[in-house]
Design a protein around this nucleic acid. Structure first.
Lengths: 164, 164
DNA sequence: CTTGGAAAGTCAACAAGGCTGACGTAAATT
DNA sequence: AATTTACGTCAGCCTTGTTGACTTTCCAAG
């Protein structure tokens, strides 16, 4: 049915339709980040800390270089964030055993607690959105998002999917 | 049918599923902004200028206050952006005739040209994603995004949808 | 007609979080 | 032994967000 409609439905990809999608992304991303931002404000952390915490939680023992690839920022920028997280005892950085140049990153218990708080909030919103939209919508949502990624990022995304 | 499946499918809303959605949003948003960012870099403008240009194009004659509501930034922040756009002759600001306190914003021809360049790029990516995902996915995509917005933002989003 | 308040603009100061460039160190690789 | 890699750091810059204080303009209600 998707296949059969395919050719015809593409006729409806007017600039107007596309613009709605663009604006939906804009407004939805605001909602997406709103809850963690609220939690972090006043805690002396920001969105950059959240991202680091998320992906360290996601891939415990990941290296700094790997995190750089995923986050797509400079090492100076990441380092600033990482340093405060380590100083504050949220993240533990340990020398690699096989390759001692590498630093393997883990969340401490304290880090886990903050990660929980942040991801609980973000998951709650995602869950509510999924429920409101219905199960059929969820798969479409993910398909479009995946197709929208740059190939490099899609690779990172899929590596994370498999890994976990 | 969505209703009927609803109860069962909700069982599959594991933390894992939700986390994938969260990461998909993160990586997809990077792709979403990548093309305009590339175009703007070197032109002395940034994402903030893009947003202003987009919504002025979208609602010609809109006021500064209205733009503030949509963008969700402070007037000082918006004003800095707006000032450079006006100085550079991309945006025209004219006193309201019915209420002279208001400033009505329009894109100049030069502004239209940049808007075109930016939105062409962004639409091209959106179009490619829609095509890759298929028409059924597109509606699900928009449904989930709408459900993810804060109510205030959903109102803004819908006002734009109707208006245009 | 005066006054209160909304809309808009401006100045100053600051912070987060990007960036580049340069440099240093330890460890691995060649 | 020389080079490359992984990481950390210092210094400086930019964009884009923030707050606070203040002015001007204007509408509308008392």
């Amino acid at each position: 049915m998707v296949e059969a409609q395919g050719g015809e439905s593409l006729l409806f990809l007017t600039d107007e339709q596309l613009r709605k999608g663009i604006e939906a992304m804009f407004f939805a991303y605001r909602g997406f980040t709103a809850d963690p931002d609220r939690i972090l404000e006043g805690k002396d952390y920001g969105r950059a800390h959240h991202r680091a915490i998320h992906f360290i939680h996601r891939s415990p023992g990941t290296t700094v270089s790997n995190l750089l690839l995923i986050l797509g920022v400079t090492k100076q920028s990441l380092n600033r964030v990482l340093r405060t997280l380590i100083e504050d005892g949220l993240v533990r950085s340990e020398k690699g055993k096989v390759d001692a140049r590498e630093r393997h990153l883990h969340l401490t218990d304290k880090g886990q607690m903050l990660e929980r708080e942040l991801s609980d909030a973000q998951r709650a919103r995602m869950r509510a959105a999924y429920r409101a939209a219905g199960p059929a919508a969820v798969s479409g949502f993910r398909q479009v998002l995946e197709a929208m990624m740059d190939p490099d990022m899609r690779r990172q995304y899929n590596r994370l999917k498999e890994g976990g």
